[in-house]
């Protein structure tokens, strides 16, 4: 069950997007998100859609794989849409039943929200799908380097990449512990919220103990492999921009320009 969450899981493929410098992908994703909120017109959404569709096509990640990842957050998306739908006040009332009124404005907001959010999610997951967690943290480390006088940038990046490595492992472990306790008659599915939280104890205690043991083991294994912080460390995959990266930046600025022009014109 937990294994089905594929959102953001790296999808190995040999595509131009996979090969881009991760910094390009992070910056482009940020710009893309900004563009979604700059745009307020349908033609703007069309541009955002086309840009995203083109990126997906180039990335060679199957659409079905991306959409499957969406399933796990469809619920969240649904709630946002419903909230917008019923809580937006407006003049033109479309439907009224019981105490709920749906206005034209509400409908419009809901649709806009749905589009923005799903584009945002697909866009960010496309970044994580085409970039390994290590590349991502590497890029963040580089992008945040100017802040290293006030932040332990290398350590933060290392912590993030280790967390990303262990999340799937701990998910699987949660599944196993749940089953082991269910085999002893534990019930994780019924009761009110307080009962349920109480029932989580047999799941959480073994999980935490295991996580601490893993942390301990890993720290020792890293020390044994001569890890001693960022000083004097070289990189196997140092980041350096190549031709394609500049092209990608060009495409990105082009896209942003189109968005701005569309916003001004329409």
């Amino acid at each position: 069950m937990l294994k089905d969450i594929t959102i953001g899981q790296y999808y190995p493929a040999d595509s131009a997007i996979h090969k881009l410098d991760p910094r390009v992908k992070i910056i482009t994703t940020v710009i893309y998100i900004v563009s979604l909120f700059v745009t307020n017109d349908w033609i703007g959404y069309l541009a955002a859609f086309l840009f995203l569709a083109a990126c997906i096509k180039v990335s060679k990640v199957p659409l079905s794989f991306i959409l499957k990842g969406m399933k796990s957050i469809a619920f969240l998306l649904g709630i946002t849409v419903v909230f917008n739908l019923i809580f937006t006040p407006g003049e033109e009332v479309l439907v009224t039943f019981w105490k709920i009124t749906i206005t034209e404005k509400g409908l419009e907001m809901a649709v806009r929200m749905a589009i923005r959010l799903s584009f945002l999610i697909v866009g960010t997951s496309l970044m994580t799908l085409t970039t390994t967690p290590n590349q991502l943290t590497n890029a963040l480390e580089r992008l945040m380097k100017p802040l290293s006088f006030m932040l332990p940038v290398h350590e933060i990046a290392m912590m993030m990449s280790i967390a990303l490595r262990f999340i799937p492992i701990l998910m699987e472990e949660t599944d196993k512990i749940m089953k082991a306790q269910m085999a002893r008659g534990a019930d994780f599915e019924t009761g009110n919220i307080i009962v349920r939280i109480k029932n989580m104890v047999p799941l959480l205690v073994p999980l935490f103990i295991s996580a601490f043991r893993r942390a301990n083991d890993l720290a020792m294994a890293m020390e044994a492999r001569c890890y001693h912080g960022g000083a004097g460390r070289t990189q196997m995959k140092p980041l350096s921009y190549r031709g394609n990266d500049w092209v990608a930046y060009g495409v990105m600025w082009g896209y942003l320009a189109v968005c701005i022009v569309l916003r001004i014109v329409f």
């Binding site: 196993k176 082991a180 085999a183 103990i209 295991s210």
Partner: peptide
């Protein structure tokens, strides 16, 4: 049924709490 067919998983660490 689970009390009738007792299943002990591989790692005791997964159930002791």
């Amino acid at each position: 049924l689970r009390s009738q067919v007792g299943l002990v998983f591989q790692y005791p660490e997964h159930q002791l709490f």
